[in-house]
Design a binder for these strands. Structure first.
Length: 738
RNA sequence: GGGCGACUAGCUCAGUUGGUUAGAGCGUUCGCUUCACACGCGAAAGGUCACAGGUUCGAAUCCUGUGUCGCCCACCA
């Protein structure tokens, strides 16, 4: 027996050594597994694309959970003999990364991005991203992730950028990308547009003012934003409201706080007759619903607020901030005797998730993806959609999720998904920031050019906006495998032998439920459009990792658990088990050091089980005939192996892990080993020989079964069983049934 | 306002789609330097499975309703 077993298991010294041995072996790469004879060249493929961590700093426990689940699946499938690819990458995370760097620069040098200029800022962000990337990769390796680093990609590298430009051009040519004026969510603090999904609603107290525009105006209206009323062009009432019926169609002109205003009375079913006075002052340029009313009634849409949330009208309000202007308008209303009522209400205001700035709805020229516009796919493997027939991006997203298409775990997340898809509006994809994929559109006077490369000729200027980061993330399952170069759009086939041909669609997309809409839905959309296919067969959504009190981990609370610290203290195996056992998809989990400590103890338990078995089987004959009892013990392990296999096939990873834990500790250690002691002290030589053989055989298979969950300790013990072949490429001890 | 979910031991959670006596980790109590392991061993206490009905031979599990908590989406000016 190796002397190392005389001391307790030490993950700190073992894990880094084992990981570098794995890396050296090259077996993270499926091609090497085939070359080494561990995987058949024609074996079925299995693939997962790593959800790329943002290059904004370091990993958190959520990443650790993701890595634990995915690595468990990957190692299991690799041992099943499949051609198993787990493809790593990182995400440039446009807004998040730029704002982190801008803050750093502001703090350290007191400079804004405008002081630095586009080129210098991008250089600084690039440096930061590189550093973050290196930190992150090291952290990922610490967790034991068996990713094929030879295929690593970045959402902003040259090939991905080419894919993004190609995709933009193709969608534009299909008429699905358009430029238009829309009310967008403008963040005056971050000076950019943000998508609906990046908004956080905060409940605040506000004052609701009821007033008339002028003395002779027949209808009183209510608003929380009196300063916007200088931009009103209509008053909308409900078509059936008897109080106002007689005024519908009338037009009035007056001077409102120094600004000449004309409003038309219109009837619109959107208006709630029970709210306030039942009459709505319509400010088309500064409210989403008002913009839509203006659409229906063909109203003018003057803009009265600019990008810095300042008033752009003449008179006393000129260049005042909106909050200041609000007070001035209220004061003016009171002076003029127009104010009728002032009441406290609570309302939800929209703020930008990243900057905390209050959203100012503004009409802007932006790029959009039309989700409802009919178009036809040239090829379709999406259930329920025929090539050549009318469909839409929303239709693709809707039909993709079905028992024949993509299945989602937990199942109830499908309902949430459909609810979201059904209420989907066009996706605004332009962002007014510098870090990201620049929109591949060039302008020269009235001319516009959309293309993968800059147009020939002088005087062309590229659109200054960049794309929403989810645009490039949406391509992730195929841009990482060589699309568009390895793809033939005419035949709808990938180049023979390319990654795209072998590992598409991917088997499972494993990620947090919080990015179901941001990312999962966008991948379905993009893949559907580009390939006429599904990006993956299954979605496995894990929950959020919370602290022991159930709070979200955050910097401000200081309750962040650093995966590096945890693995340093208890080992990656322990952290992985703690994250996996009992953690069902879609459910948030609480993690505490105590739980992790429990699995560190388990790793040591396993170590001592091995020690006992090795100590007592040095002269074992593995071919010794088994007693009846031992035959039953062997069969018991086979049953366990079958159950664990079924659980893993059904993605019940949390159950498989628990069963193995239970067997190892309560059955093997507590019962079988205890019984063995008396057998070994006895005189029945046949029973001794049998027991030695069966214990070795059980340990051999148990190590294999546990390896996907606790790769390090099992690999280290394995060296005493078969030093010639790493455990990670040995064959799984049970077949997939059915 | 719309949607989704949770409620099981002191705490954190499982319970593999209806089947003996409902499980685990941590915690608690008592006893152990027992020849694999004190990162351990042996024992013990602790649950009306939120509540009320219903279906069933049988319900923590299925149905209906109630309560409490949480999350997501939308947003009324």
């Amino acid at each position: 027996m190796d002397e190392k077993f005389l001391k307790p298991y030490d993950p700190q010294s073992t894990e880094p050594r084992i990981y570098s041995e794995w890396e050296k072996s090259g077996f993270f790469n499926p091609d090497t597994c085939v070359e080494g004879g561990h995987t058949a060249p024609d074996a079925a493929p299995y693939s997962i694309i790593l959800p790329p961590p943002n290059v904004t700093g370091r990993l958190h426990m959520g990443h650790a959970l993701m890595l634990a689940i995915e690595d468990t699946l990957i190692r299991y499938k690799r041992m099943q003999g499949l051609r198993t690819l787990w493809l790593p990458g990182t995400d440039h995370a446009a807004i998040a990364t730029q704002s982190v760097v801008e803050k750093q620069i502001q703090k350290a040098e007191g400079k804004s991005r405008h002081d630095l200029g586009r080129e210098e800022l991008l250089k600084r962000i690039g440096e930061f991203a590189k550093e973050s990337h290196d930190t992150i990769v090291n952290q990922v390796k610490t967790m034991g992730a068996s990713l094929d680093w030879s295929r690593e990609v970045f959402t902003l590298d040259e090939e991905r950028s080419y894919a993004v430009r190609t995709m933009f051009k193709n969608m534009y040519e299909a008429g699905l990308i358009y430029r238009g004026h829309r009310i967008v969510n403008w963040d005056p603090k971050g000076q950019t547009t943000i998508s609906d999904d990046e908004i956080v609603h905060e409940e605040r107290k506000a004052k609701l003012y009821t007033f008339r525009y002028a003395k002779d105006f027949p209808i009183a209206i209510s608003t929380t934003r009196p300063e916007t009323k200088v931009g009103d062009t209509a008053v909308a009432v409900h078509p059936d409201d008897p109080r106002y019926k007689e005024y519908v169609g009338e037009e009035y002109s007056f001077t409102f706080c120094d600004v000449p205003v004309s409003v038309k009375i219109v009837a619109d079913p959107e208006v709630d007759p029970a709210f306030g006075t039942g009459a709505l002052g319509v400010t088309p340029a500064h409210s989403q619903t008002d913009w839509e009313i203006a659409d229906r009634h063909d109203l003018p849409r003057p803009q009265v607020i600019n990008e810095y949330a300042k008033m752009t009208v003449e008179g006393r309000l000129n260049n005042k901030k909106t909050t200041e202007a609000r007070d001035m308008v209220v004061e003016w209303l009171a002076e003029e005797g127009l104010l009728e009522k002032e009441e406290e209400i609570s309302q939800n205001i929209s703020t930008a998730e990243r900057t905390g700035g209050i959203i100012e709805p503004l009409p802007k020229l932006q790029w959009f993806i039309a989700v409802n516009k009919p178009f036809a796919l040239r090829h379709s493997k999406i259930p329920g959609i025929q090539a050549g027939e009318d469909t839409s991006l929303r239709d693709i997203m809707h039909k993709a999720v079905s028992p024949e298409g993509i299945t989602v775990m937990p199942e109830h997340a499908e309902k949430t998904y459909f609810h979201w898809v059904e209420n989907l509006r066009d996706w605004c994809i332009s962002r007014q920031i510098w870090y990201g994929h620049r929109i591949p559109v060039w302008y020269r006077g009235e001319e516009m050019y959309v293309g993968v490369e800059a147009p020939e000729g002088e005087g062309w200027e590229q659109d200054s906006d960049t794309l929403d980061t989810w645009f490039s993330s949406g391509l992730w399952t195929f841009s990482t495998m060589g699309w568009p170069k390895a793809w033939n759009d005419q035949t709808g086939e990938a180049e023979q032998g390319s990654d795209l041909a072998i590992w598409r669609p991917t088997d499972v997309l494993e990620t947090g439920y919080d990015i179901l809409f941001f990312w999962v839905a966008r991948m379905i959309l993009m893949t559907g459009f580009a390939l006429g296919e599904l990006p993956f067969k299954r979605v496995y959504l894990h929950g959020l990792v919370r602290d022991a009190q159930g709070r979200k981990m955050s910097k401000s609370l200081g309750n962040n658990m650093d995966p590096l610290e945890v693995t340093a203290k208890y080992g990656a195996d322990a952290a992985r088990m703690a994250l996996i056992v009992g953690n069902t998809p879609g459910t948030d989990m609480r993690i505490s050091e105590d739980k992790i400590k429990g699995y560190k103890h388990f790793a040591n338990k396993l170590w001592n089980i091995a020690r006992f078995i090795f100590e007592n089987t040095e002269d074992a004959d593995v071919a010794a005939p088994l007693t009846e009892t031992d035959t039953a013990l062997r069969a018991e392990l086979d049953t366990l192996a079958t159950e664990v296999t079924q659980d893993l096939e059904a993605y019940r990873i949390y159950l498989a892990a628990e069963k193995l834990y239970h067997y190892a500790w309560d059955r093997l250690a507590a019962e079988l080993i205890e019984e063995s002691k008396s057998i070994f002290q006895g005189t029945d030589e046949a029973a001794k020989a049998s027991r030695k053989a069966v214990l070795l055989s059980i340990l051999t298979d148990l190590l294999k079964l546990l390896h996907p969950f606790m790769p390090f300790v099992t690999e280290e013990i394995w060296k005493s069983i078969d030093p010639s072949t790493p455990l990670m490429v040995t064959r799984w001890p049970a077949r997939i049934e059915g």
